[in-house]
Each structure stands twice: as structure tokens, then as C-alpha cells.
Amino acid sequence: MRSIALLGKIGMSDHTIILPSKPKVVSEDKLRGVYEIDSLYPGYGHTLGNSLRRIILSSLPGTALTVVKIDGVKHEFSTLDGLKEDIITLILNLKKVRFKSTVDEPQEATLRVKELRKITAADIKTSGQVEVLNKDQYIAEITDKKITLDVTMQLEQGLGYIPKRMLQQDKVEVGTIVLDAVFTPIRRVNYEVENMRVGDRTDYNKLRIFIETDGTLSPREALERSIEIMIKQLKAVVGFQEEEKEEEVLPEEEGVEEVKGGVDKDFLRTRIDTLGFSTRTANALASSNIRTVGGLIRKSPDDLYSIDGLGEKGMQEIRRTLGNFGVTLK
């Protein structure tokens, strides 16, 4: 009887997974931060750490230089008489300049210098919605007083890294240089996991996260936003997907019949996220609950222009994509 009672005690275990602590600051300054999360269930340190690291690197928006036009220059493999640097070096230095934009729409910045001197990011002129953060960043040096360096730049907001072949969907005029865009405001992020004691167990995890940003947001903001993104994504997949209501694409709905023309009814049920729209356009449509082609073509251009984050560039993308399938907006 005694052995049975003893076995009963040993066999009884707590099946409750305790919740971890809130993040605490180990060290922090303007660009770098180290944070710890304690009391993670065994194995959860790597699960949470790797997920947060990937989100921090890929899913935090930032502002990047996407297009450059330099007066007197036809392509990036050129040189400019009177300028110490070649054009490729000039562009690489411009890409090191960190911009912070308060709006989603593309913004223009200019650089115009005609003096014999070194040029820094402080010489860049921007609108009131854009701020240059590292104004001491070296750009180039003019060595001949006869020349004027005149540069026009386009700045856009985005996520992660986008190669120029994806940004340059249409032909551009000679002299317009489209660039690979690094939008992420994160310079480096890493994590480590070590065991810690919780009660009688010594295999619980302590997660330590190291974050370095470019100054457009603080390390703490980067961690907080990544946690919010993770929670939002997980909430979206709770439960199972229900079938979309047929009425979303019924041809008898007002305005669909005349717009549809000879379009296949099945195509009207096609989901927007399968058409290859850019992330910006797809997110703007999803935020307005436009999820199928049928729902999209019921909207007038005025309706679409009123959607936050969907400007003229997005409208051109929608028209072009629908046109490939022989469909037009109202």
C-alpha cells in the first residue's frame, strides 16, 4: 500500500503551462537594447526567440531610397567630371542615409550643391513629413567649381528588402535609376536561451534578446511591435475558416452584372491575395474587407481612392492586374 501511494505521488504532475514574465530591460540606449523574458516553459525559449527574431527582421516598416535621378547621368555605371566619387559610390553613400517618414505615400528629397566642399546628408532637402536622422553621413565631394551636383530622390515606406526588379514594374526614362530597397529599420537582432529554476524544476527557459536599430525607432519599440504582430497573426488563425458567403460574388448584386460582362463566375470568387499584388496594395484592400475579385470590381475608382494606403500607384497596379484577365473597374 505504501509503494502504491508513493507511486501515486510520483505519477501526479501539474499539466498547467505557466505564463512567462513580461520583458524586462537589461540594458538600453537609443540604438541598442538587451531584454529578458523569464519563466518560459521548457523549449519555449527557442520557439519564442526565433519567431520574434524573424518578425523583427522582416515585418517592421521603414523608409528607404528607391529611385535616384542625377542631372547629367544616364546610368549608375557613369562618372561625373568634378565629382571625386563615381556614381555607384555616390548611390551607396546615399543608401546609408536613414530617413524617417510620418506618411505612407512616396516622398521626394533633393540634393543640390555647387560648391567646392564635402557633401553630407545635412545637405539633403526633404518635405516636412520626412526627417534625415544621420545628417553627418558623408555622401560625396565636389572637386571642380564648374559643376553642380543635382540629385532627385524618391523615398518610400515598406517592409524588409525588395529588389529593384520588383520595384521597377514599368519602363523608366533614361537617367532614372531604380535601386534595391532595404526598408527594415533593424541593423541586427539575436537571441540566446539559458535554463533557469522555477519551483523544483531547473529546465525552464530564460530568453535574452539583443536588438540594434538604425535610429528610426527604439529597440524597445521594435520588440513591442514584433510581439503585437505575433499576437495579431495568431489571433487570425484561431478557429477554422468558414466558407465565403456566396452573396459576395453573386452576379445579381447591384453593379456586378454590367461590370462583369463575360467574366467567368469562378474568377469573381478568386481571392485578392492570389493575384500577385504588392504587399502595400494587398494590405490596403484587406483592411477594407475587399477579399475577392467580385468585391473589388464592385468598387468605383472613387471608392478605391478613399482607401488609406492606396494611391495612384496602387490604382495603376489594380487596373493593370485586372486588365491581364480582361476585367475592368466600374
Score class of each variant (00 low, 15 high):
S39Y: 07
S78Y: 08
D302E: 14
K118L: 04
V68K: 10
E194L: 06
S127I: 09
L207V: 02
A236N: 01
E173M: 08
M196Q: 07
R220N: 00
D203G: 01
D123T: 10
R220Q: 07
G45I: 06
T148S: 08
L133D: 08
G262Y: 08
K114V: 04
Q129Y: 11
G294I: 06
Q129N: 14
D136Q: 10
Q241R: 12
D200E: 05
E248S: 08
Q129F: 12
V259R: 01
S78H: 11
D214A: 01
Y35A: 12
D200I: 08
V193A: 02
K135C: 05
E105I: 14
I55H: 06
K146C: 01
G262C: 05
D266K: 10
G175T: 07
R197M: 04
S59V: 04
E312M: 11
K206H: 02
V259I: 14
V73M: 14
S300M: 06
L83N: 07
I147D: 00
H75G: 09
I272K: 02
K164E: 00
K74F: 13
L94D: 08
T89E: 06
I87F: 09
G295V: 06
I318V: 09
D303Q: 07
K69W: 02
R32H: 13
L90I: 15
T16K: 12
M12V: 13
T328A: 03
S78M: 11
K9T: 04
Q157C: 12
Y41N: 02
M153G: 05
K171Q: 06
N93F: 09
F240Q: 06
L268K: 06
T281R: 07
E257I: 14
D86R: 10
E248L: 15
H15L: 14
A282M: 07
P61F: 03
R2D: 15
L90V: 15
D86S: 13
L40R: 05
K171D: 03
S288W: 05
E156A: 15
R269Y: 10
G199L: 12
V182C: 00
I4S: 12
G62I: 14
D308T: 02
I162E: 09
Q169F: 03
L268M: 15
G33I: 06
V151G: 00
V178A: 03
T216Y: 02
D104C: 02
S218E: 05
I272W: 14
L48V: 14
L285W: 02
K69C: 11
F267G: 09
S51D: 03
E36S: 03
K84T: 06
T110Q: 11
P185V: 02
A286E: 04
E131I: 15
L83W: 11
T270I: 13
P163F: 01
R298T: 06
T89V: 12
E246M: 11
E192H: 07
F99L: 04
I4Q: 12
S218R: 02
